[in-house]
Design a protein around this nucleic acid. Structure first.
Lengths: 141, 141
DNA sequence: AAATAAAATTGTAACAATTACAGAATTTGA
DNA sequence: TCAAATTCTGTAATTGTTACAATTTTATTT
């Protein structure tokens, strides 16, 4: 299985729950929060505990297999896409969009490293209103 | 008084509490959280309620007189510096540093606007270890 | 200046996201 | 198969934030 090896490549011991959660992350680019993942997977794994979802995502982030987004004030979101990209959250519907970044070096990060900082994460995000909502098709996701 | 007019310029009716909170924000570039502000000002204003600090900062953000940072997962931080700049949070001591941004246009934002997005906020931040902590002088702030 | 209305502040209670923790279940390794 | 280690579960505790009603303060009208 594919996700199985993906997890092991990050030194994460696979389990039914971990595979299901990573699989969900890789297949749903919606930047889901804990609850979304929990509710979706509970259908297949009825015994799933929300604590496990918390623990597992924390594990993923620690092993570098997922990223945590703190764009949304209310709750943390998670991203299985590890490529360099920015995010945009619509203030109306709450959706988080992926925004491609021009491939160019990050001068700020470079000068920080010069200044003695160790840079482990770089986040960039925007907020505003998405085209969908601007068009009046506002709908809570 | 200076802060008084500063508040009115943002259409915020000044009060003892609001002036004290804005004054604290302008004088302390530490990106304080609610609790830091509350604890610091309680000494001068013993009747101050934490709810007031919450309400007031929400008001400031709505009127564009302050910015809320969601870098720290545990609690929101606030910044009275409205100029364009990035932030760096040290994972060891938790300090949030200001990082100057080269003055150049934000191509990503521009292309998003082209794509129909309304961009109201742009955030950029980094995480890692600061020089102080790297040198071993780790100390929780 | 007194009375009234409006706005701001306070404190408690409710709420929601997250974490701690101990017991149950599962996996691993002899 | 049995013991040890790991993972998972569910409840309880914790914490940041918000709702709300009562009180206080400020502004307005008479």
């Amino acid at each position: 299985m594919k996700v199985y090896e993906y997890l092991t490549s990050y030194n994460i011991k696979p389990s039914v729950q971990r595979i299901a959660i990573m699989d969900y992350l890789l297949k749903h680019k919606t930047h889901p929060c804990i609850d979304e993942i929990y509710l979706a997977l509970s259908k297949d794994i009825p015994t799933l505990s929300k604590t496990t979802v918390y623990n597992t995502l924390k594990l993923f982030v620690e092993h570098g297999a997922a990223k945590m987004l703190t764009i949304d004030e209310r709750n943390a979101c998670f991203d299985g896409d590890l490529s360099r990209h920015a995010h945009f959250q619509c203030k109306v519907c709450g959706r988080i969009y992926d925004i491609p970044l021009e491939e160019k070096r990050d001068e700020e990060a470079e000068s920080m490293i010069q200044g003695g900082f160790t840079v482990e994460e770089a986040h960039r995000y925007y907020k505003g209103v998405c085209p969908r909502c601007a068009a009046g098709n506002a709908q809570k996701s």
